[in-house]
Design a protein around this nucleic acid. Structure first.
Length: 134
DNA sequence: GCCAACGTTGGC
DNA sequence: GCCAACGTTGGC
């Protein structure tokens, strides 16, 4: 079981929309590192849903409902997608500022590689954030 | 195969 | 709205 974090700009695809859809294809990734992370995902793995630009906070948890497969929106065929399903909303969103200030979280891939849209999360980081969001 | 130019992301 | 960081592209 692995943990991940996926980013979305609320203006492009928000957590509210995710809750409405229940499941969604995570299309549009055009970065090799992000793609590699998606390829490593297994069904049932869980991921934080992070709002970039507006909010800058983790708002919810999703799980991988379908593993990596072709993304029809990519004409080159280089990039694929996974499908994610909404699990639950965090009672208290965990902000980027909180994570930067937290000794256990300040080395997260989210912070060190701010442009990476799909990143791994360690078990320790996962549990720390879940606690902060409770 | 290197590296400069360019484009995009995302925090502030 | 600006700008730093960084991934990608393309010329050589």
């Amino acid at each position: 079981m692995s943990y991940w974090l996926v980013k979305s700009e609320p203006s492009a695809y928000s957590w509210a929309q995710m809750l409405k859809d229940k499941k969604t294809g995570w299309t549009g990734v055009r970065n090799f590192q992000a793609r590699n992370n998606m390829q490593a995902m297994k069904a049932g793995d869980e991921a934080f849903f992070y709002h970039s630009n507006e909010g800058k906070e983790i708002v919810g948890i999703v799980k991988i409902s379908k593993t990596y497969h072709a993304d029809p929106t990519d004409p080159t065929g280089n990039f694929g997608m996974v499908e994610v399903a909404a699990v639950r909303t965090l009672k208290t969103p965990v902000t980027l500022a909180q994570m930067k200030a937290h000794a256990k979280l300040k080395n997260m891939a989210l912070i060190k590689q701010s442009r990476l849209s799909v990143s791994p999360v360690t078990k320790d980081e996962w549990e720390t954030i879940v606690k902060l969001g409770a």
